[in-house]
Simulated scan of single mutants.
Amino acid sequence: MPKALILIADGSEEIEFVTPYDVLIRAGFEVTSVGVGLKEGGFATCTRNIRILPDHPTLSSLPAPPSPSLTFDILILPGGGPGAKTFSTTSSVLGLIYDFRAAGKWVAAICAGTTALVASQDKHGGEKVKVTSHPSVEKEIRGMGWEYADGGERVVVDGRVVTSRGPGTALLFSLTIVELLAGKEKRDEVAGPMVVAETL
C-alpha cells in the first residue's frame, strides 16, 4: 500500500493533521509523521492547544537513504496559520515539497497549508496548478499568480496536487487521497464503517 509523509508544527490544525493520519491508516497506508521546528520535548502544540507527538521529531531524523521523495508516495501539509507559516519559511520543507513534485509524487495541502506549496514554487520553481485553501489566505495565493478554484470546490485535484479548504473538509480531503492512491473501492471500504454521509 502507499506510504504517506505528513508534517506537523506548533500551530498546526489538529483536525487537519489527525483526520488524514487516521483515514489513511484505516485504508492500509503506511503513515509517518514528522515535526518541523518543534521545541525540546518534541511535541507539537496545535491551534487548540492539543499536543501531538510525531513519529519523528525532525526531517533529519528520518532514515537517510533514500530521499523522502523516493521513499514516500505523498506529502501531506496540514493547515493552521502558525504551522503553515513555519512550513512556508523552513528551507528544508520548501525543498521537500519541490522534490516530491519534481519526482512526480503527490503533494496534498489543506487550509493555510497551501501557502507552503506556493512558497516552494516561488523559491524553487515548478508548475503552478489550480488550488484552493482557507479563505483567509486566498488573496495571498491569488497574488502569487496561482489559479484559484471557485469557493464551491471543497477539494481540488490538479495534476499531482490535492488541496482543500479547512477543518470542515478534512474528511473529504482524506478520502480523496485514499481514492487517488488506492482506488474508489478502497475509499468505499473505508467510508462505510465510518458511517460517512453521502454529501461531505
Rank of each mutant, 00 (worst) to 15 (best):
D158R: 02
G168S: 13
A84R: 02
S92Q: 14
S92F: 12
G37W: 07
G113P: 02
R142H: 07
D22T: 10
A109I: 00
P66T: 03
A182C: 10
D55I: 01
V157I: 14
P193Q: 08
V23K: 01
G152Y: 12
T176Y: 04
K39N: 09
P65D: 15
P193A: 10
T32I: 10
V190K: 02
K186G: 05
G143W: 15
E147I: 08
D122Y: 03
P2H: 11
P2A: 12
Y98H: 15
V137Q: 00
H124I: 04
D22V: 04
A64F: 11
P65S: 15
K130F: 05
D73W: 01
V157G: 06
G143T: 14
I8Q: 06
P66Q: 05
E14T: 04
V93W: 03
R187N: 12
L5E: 02
E13Y: 03
G80A: 00
I8P: 15
E138R: 15
I25P: 00
A191V: 05
V196R: 02
E138P: 00
L180Q: 14
V129G: 02
M1G: 11
S60G: 13
I141A: 11
P68S: 09
E40A: 11
V155E: 05
Y21I: 09
S133D: 11
P68T: 07
V23E: 07
P68W: 12
V118W: 13
P68N: 12
G145Q: 10
I141H: 13
G95C: 08
I50V: 14
E179F: 06
L5Y: 00
P78C: 08
V118Y: 10
A102K: 13
V93S: 04
L59H: 10
V196Y: 05
